[in-house]
Simulated assay, not measured.
Amino acid sequence: MSFENQLKEEMRLVLLRLLNEMPSYRGNSSTLHSGLDRWGLSFSRDQVKTELYWLKDQGCLSIEMEDPAVLVVKLTERGQDAVENRTRIHGIKRPSA
């Protein structure tokens, strides 16, 4: 696996973890972008949105509002299962034990 793919898998897990910690399991792409930065993961806002759409396609989150500037997303049960290591989703880093 390439280093770029490893970074993407890590970013996807961190995005789900951030949503899992937010009130009502909801957040927006801007806040999540800032959260990634705090975890030492530096990605563009466009990359964050691309990965949020990818996570939506995997059933890990739903998109509640689409705007060119910001996406509002909500963690799904499947996404929470991935964060809490109850399910394995190819393309998302598995949480450490």
Score class of each variant (00 low, 15 high):
Phe3Gly: 06
Phe3Arg: 14
Leu7Phe: 01
Glu10Ala: 12
Met11Asn: 03
Arg12Glu: 03
Leu13Asn: 07
Val14Glu: 12
Val14Gln: 14
Leu15Val: 15
Leu15Ile: 15
Leu15Gly: 05
Leu15Tyr: 10
Leu16Phe: 02
Leu16Asn: 01
Leu16Val: 11
Glu21Lys: 14
Glu21Trp: 03
Pro23Ala: 13
Tyr25Gln: 11
Arg26His: 04
Arg26Trp: 00
Gly27Asp: 03
Gly27Ser: 15
Ser29Ile: 08
Ser29Asp: 06
Ser29Cys: 13
Ser29Tyr: 10
Ser29Arg: 07
Ser30Asp: 11
Thr31Ile: 15
Thr31Gly: 04
Leu32Ser: 09
Leu36Arg: 09
Asp37Lys: 15
Arg38Cys: 07
Trp39Tyr: 14
Trp39Leu: 06
Gly40Gln: 10
Gly40Lys: 05
Leu41Glu: 04
Ser42Leu: 07
Ser44His: 01
Ser44Lys: 05
Ser44Ala: 06
Asp46Cys: 00
Gln47Gly: 01
Gln47Glu: 11
Gln47Ser: 12
Val48Trp: 05
Val48Ile: 13
Thr50Gly: 05
Glu51Pro: 14
Trp54Asn: 13
Trp54Phe: 13
Lys56Arg: 14
Asp57Cys: 00
Gln58Ser: 08
Gln58Lys: 15
Gln58Ala: 07
Gly59Thr: 09
Gly59Gln: 10
Gly59Phe: 10
Cys60Tyr: 08
Leu61Ala: 06
Ser62Leu: 06
Ile63Val: 14
Glu66Tyr: 01
Pro68Gly: 10
Ala69Thr: 05
Ala69Phe: 07
Val70Thr: 08
Val70His: 06
Val73Tyr: 14
Leu75Thr: 15
Leu75Phe: 05
Thr76Ile: 02
Thr76Tyr: 01
Glu77Leu: 10
Arg78Ala: 15
Arg78Glu: 15
Gly79Met: 04
Gln80Pro: 00
Ala82Gln: 06
Val83Met: 11
Val83Ile: 14
Glu84His: 08
Asn85Cys: 10
Asn85Glu: 11
Arg86Ala: 04
Thr87Phe: 00
Thr87Cys: 07
Arg88Trp: 02
Gly91Tyr: 09
Gly91Glu: 07
Gly91Asp: 11
Ile92Thr: 13
Pro95Ser: 07
Ala97Pro: 03
Ala97Cys: 00
Ala97Val: 07
